[in-house]
Design a protein around this nucleic acid. Structure first.
Lengths: 248, 248
DNA sequence: GTTACTCCCTACCAAGTGGTAGGCCATAGC
DNA sequence: GCTATGGCCTACCACTTGGTAGGGAGTAAC
C-alpha cells in the first residue's frame, strides 16, 4: 500500500477543474483535453485517474451531491427543531449554491443531460429528505403554513426555484435596471428569491410566536438591509460532527 | 424569383427537428449528422439551408423566442386590462411551455450555454415586457400585491420558476410518490407551480373584487384564449395579419 | 541490488466533427 | 430547343474526439 504520498491532491484537482468546466460549458462541450490542460497534465494521465469521461462525470456529480447531501439533513433537523428556522434553512441553501454558482449550474445541466441518472441519484439522496420536509409542512398546514400547499410539489419546486435562481442569477442581474454596478441587483435577487420561497409557503398572518412549528414572523433583521449573518456557521444544529469539512 | 415551390416546408422541418434535438441533447450534444438524419436529408443539404451550425442554432432560438414574444405582450395586456387576470396570465404562460416542454428545456440550455447571446435577445425581447409587468406590480403593491415584493426581481424569478418548473416537471413527476401513474402527479406539480407564483405575489387577503388591479380571487376559468395580437412589436398593436402560423 | 507499484508521459488510433467542392437533376424562363 | 437556378446529392477534407499501448522515472519494500 505504501502510504500513498499524495493520494488526493491530483484526483481532487481534476475533480475541481472538471466540475468548473462541466458547469460552464456542459459535459459535451468539455473535452478531456481541456480538462487535462486546466489541470496541467496530459490526457492519458487524466484517463489514468478516471478510466473514462463518463466515470469522471459521475465522480464529479457524486462529489457535488455528497456535499449537498451533508447539508440538507442538517438543515431539515434545524427546521424541525423549532421556531423561525425557515429563514435560516432557505438562506443556508441559497448561500450554499451562491457561494459557488457552478454547483447550481452543474446540477441544472445534469438534470437536462442525464435525467435518468440524476433521477436515480435524487431518489436515493434527496427524496427521503423531501419526504421529511413535506411531512413537516403538512404538520404546519392551516397554521403557519398556507392551507392549500401541496407539500411534496412545493418542496420540489422550491428546490428548483433556489437552484435555478442561483444558476441564472448572473444573467438576471445583468438584465436588471441597476445591473451594471454589481452589488445591489444581486442582493435584490437573492432577497426576492428567499421572499418568494417563504411567502408562498408561510402565511403572513398574525404573529403567533408561541407556535411550535414554523412561524411566519419575519426574522428580526429587517428584510431590507441585508446584513449577512455570519459565514460558515449556521446556527442551531450541532452538526453530526462526523459531517464534512471539505469544500465548505 | 420564381415563386419558390415550397419555400418553408424543408426549412421549417429542419427547424423543428433541430429544436427537438437541441432541447433534448443540447447544442454540443447534437451533430449536424443527427439533425440531417432526423429530417431525412444528407448533411450538406442541411448546410445548404443553414450555412453553419451556429446559424442554425440562432434560427432555432429566434423562432422560439418569436413565439414567446408573441404571447407575452398579449398576456401583459390582459393582465393590465383588469381584474382577476393574474391566474389567466400565469396559466397561459405555463400552458405555453407545458404544451411542448422542449421549449422550456431549450431556453434553459441556451441560457447556460450562450449566456451573452441569450442576454442580448432577452434585453431586446422580454426586458421591456418585464418592465411593464413590474410597473403593474408596483401599482398594486400594498393593495392586492404584497407590500415587500421587489417587482423586477419577482418577475425574473417567476419567469424562471415557470420555465424551469416545466423543464424539469417530468423528472420531478417521476420522483413524486404517485409519480408512476402518469396523470395526477403532473397536475399536482402544475397546480402548485401556479399557486407558488401567485401566493408569493398576491395577498390572500379579503376579497376586494372591485379593485381595478390584480385581485386574488381565482378566475372562473376561461384564460385569455385566442385572438392573436401583434408580432414583432410588443404592447398593444393589432396584428399585421401576416403573423406567424408556425409551430403553435 | 531487484522487484513492484504508482504516476505520468509520448505516440498512436478509429471514429466522428463541422464544413467544402463539385456534380446531377428537376423545374422555370426564354 | 437552351440556359439558369435551386435543392439535393456523393466524395472528401482537416481536425478533434475519447481512448489505447507501452515505456520511463520515482519511490518503497526486501
Amino acid at each position: 500500500m505504501a502510504a500513498t504520498p499524495h493520494p488526493l491532491p491530483m484526483r481532487e484537482k481534476i475533480l475541481v477543474e472538471a466540475t468548473r468546466l462541466f458547469a460552464r460549458q456542459g459535459y459535451d462541450g468539455t473535452s478531456l483535453q481541456a480538462i487535462a490542460d486546466a489541470v496541467g497534465i496530459k490526457k492519458p494521465s487524466l484517463i489514468h485517474h478516471f478510466a473514462s469521461k463518463d466515470l469522471l462525470r459521475q465522480a464529479v456529480l457524486d462529489a457535488q451531491l455528497t456535499h449537498w447531501n451533508e447539508l440538507l439533513p442538517r438543515l431539515v433537523l434545524a427546521a424541525a427543531a423549532g421556531e423561525d428556522q425557515f429563514d435560516a434553512v432557505t438562506r443556508e441553501i441559497v448561500r450554499f449554491f451562491s457561494k459557488d454558482p457552478d454547483r447550481a449550474r452543474l446540477l441544472v445541466r445534469e438534470a437536462l443531460d442525464h435525467p435518468e441518472d440524476m433521477q436515480e441519484r435524487f431518489s436515493r439522496l434527496v427524496v427521503p429528505v423531501v419526504g421529511s420536509l413535506a411531512q413537516l409542512i403538512r404538520r404546519g398546514r392551516g397554521k403557519a403554513v398556507h392551507a392549500d400547499v401541496d407539500a411534496e410539489a412545493y418542496v420540489f419546486h422550491a428546490i428548483n426555484l433556489f437552484i435555478s435562481g442561483v444558476a441564472f442569477a448572473d444573467s438576471f442581474q445583468r438584465l436588471m435596471p441597476d445591473g451594471k454596478k454589481r452589488g445591489p441587483a444581486a442582493e435584490r435577487l437573492t432577497r426576492e428569491l428567499l421572499r418568494i420561497g417563504k411567502s408562498s409557503l408561510i402565511q403572513p398572518g398574525p404573529r403567533r410566536s408561541a407556535e411550535p412549528t414554523w412561524s411566519s414572523t419575519a426574522s428580526p433583521d429587517s428584510p431590507a438591509t441585508g446584513k449577512r449573518p455570519a459565514r460558515g456557521k449556521h446556527r442551531v444544529s450541532r452538526a453530526p460532527k462526523s459531517a464534512a469539512r471539505e469544500t465548505e
